[in-house]
């Protein structure tokens, strides 16, 4: 009779303790794993180095280009990705799973492959590329090319987020709107879109954040003009770690700033809703 409670106690308490230790340790380790390298990078450059980097025209130009091209990619995702997200959220059709897999593909494939694939399609050796060149659109080594790459890698994040947002808008609201006389377009713009605006904003944040950090695909399509990650890579390979760190710090801060600003915006959007 005594052995039973003792066994129960051992079986109940000891695994519980191990479980809690595992949870706490892994949480601390994961957070440290993310925060420590970033904090160390931010703390590495001296103030003089940071000020000199902030006065460096090449750095400012590349950071500006990164922001501009990422913003453009997220606006493109908004304009071109929203209808597809809506169709995926509302319609059932043959081959829907294939379409959804196709949208997720840019997340799965190695990033330099994205660059190679875009160049293969839009390069001068391809008929499509020749048409683009004839139209004055140049992908290789241009802002257009950079934006195309960033749009490509950021699109899955936008479409999946907004698709979930559309799915959360009850179909009955659209039904009522239609029965009250609003056509499909009026219903979309007056009911569905406003109710999904927070998801769209979050989708744009994710798309932009993803685009801002892209290196592998961009470096294939356009080494010049240089986006910030490419510039940082160049300084790392040419001059070493300490020379690339200030650029990395600026990139981290810009990412955090954008993330913070858009999070605040999306929060206020939620409160309004």
């Amino acid at each position: 009779m005594r052995a039973f409670p003792a066994t129960e106690g051992r079986a109940g308490v000891l695994p519980g303790l191990i479980f809690h230790l595992w949870v706490v340790t892994s949480c601390v380790l994961v957070l440290l794993f993310i925060a420590a390298p970033l904090a160390r990078t931010i703390a590495s450059p001296t103030l003089e180095q940071m000020l000199a980097t902030l006065r460096d025209a090449d750095v400012l130009r590349s950071v500006g280009l990164s922001i501009w091209a990422s913003a453009l990619a997220s606006v493109l995702a908004l304009i071109l990705g929203t209808p597809l997200a809506y169709v995926l959220a509302r319609r059932t059709f043959r081959g829907k799973k294939i379409v959804e897999s196709l949208i997720d593909l840019p997340i799965m494939i190695p990033h330099p492959v994205v660059g190679i694939a875009l160049l293969t399609l839009a390069g001068r050796n391809n008929w499509f590329g020749r048409i683009l060149t004839d139209m004055g659109v140049n992908i290789m080594g241009s802002i257009t090319g950079i934006t195309a790459v960033l749009f490509f890698v950021g699109l899955p994040f936008y479409i999946n987020t907004v698709k979930n947002g559309f799915e959360n808008v009850p179909v009955r609201l659209e039904n009522v709107s239609r029965s009250l006389g609003a056509g499909p377009s009026a219903t979309f713009f007056r009911i569905t879109l406003p109710l999904c605006s927070r998801s769209m904003l979050v989708g744009m944040i994710m798309c932009m954040a993803r685009a801002l950090s892209e290196f592998g695909a961009v470096v294939i399509v356009a080494y010049h003009p240089m986006v910030a990650p490419v510039l940082m890579y160049e300084r790392f390979t040419a001059y070493g770690l300490s020379y690339s760190q200030p650029v990395a710090v600026i990139l981290i801060l810009v990412s955090l700033l954008f993330f913070f600003l858009l999070r605040v915006l999306s929060k206020s959007e939620k409160e309004e809703a």
């Binding site: 009850p170 009955r172 609201l173 039904n175 009522v176 239609r178 029965s179 009250l180 006389g181 609003a182 056509g183």
Partner: peptide, 14 residues
């Protein structure tokens, strides 16, 4: 639906 001049009221108000 928008051209039928019928109004629909659902159980969950919508």
């Amino acid at each position: 639906p928008e051209r039928r001049r019928v109004s629909l009221v659902y159980q969950d108000h919508a």
